[in-house]
Amino acid sequence: MSALATSAATTRTHEATPHATSTGLSNVKLAVWAFLASECLLFGALISTYLLYRGRSIVGPYPHQIYDIPYTSVSSFVLLMSSLTMVLALAAVQRGDTRRMRVWLLATALLGMTFVGGQAYEFTSFVRQGLTLHTNLFGSSFFVLTGFHGAHVTIGIVMLLSLFGLSLRGKLGPENAETVELIGLYWHFVDVVWIVIFTVVYLIPS
């Protein structure tokens, strides 16, 4: 009965993972989207924790005493614009313009580093004003939420720099456009999470 196992009478090369999938969609891209969908629940839980504990701290400092909205607005803007440079890098590599792609990748990574650097500065300034992980519920939930986001941005920067390094060695051409696209998806996701955090955590008053 092993008809299927043995019926190939011809010499033929099969790819183990054929490019034509049953939905016509790329495996890796579907995987990245599934992963991002999963991340929604991760950040959802962290943001909910923050919301739950907002206004429940027993001792200060409290959010309105410590947030520097102009400063955070600028760094939010920086992250937002890094999404533009990211998508321009993708457009460039899809056109086959690897030189421009390299420039935009590096720009994205630099904007990301600016954001993370700004976050590090914000954290130290909060600590100087007396807010640490241990101080109160606000400190705990704020630092863990934004710290998790910052870690995600950092991972994105590492991936972008890896792409940049590969492209310097000529290993990242138009045939790898999908790789750029996937890392871009991750990067944009991190950006949209920050859009939510900026509004829900910083702007909406408690």
Partner: peptide, 8 residues
């Protein structure tokens, strides 16, 4: 089955 080249 003759030759089956499967690229795994």
């Amino acid at each position: 089955a003759g030759e089956v080249h499967v690229h795994m």
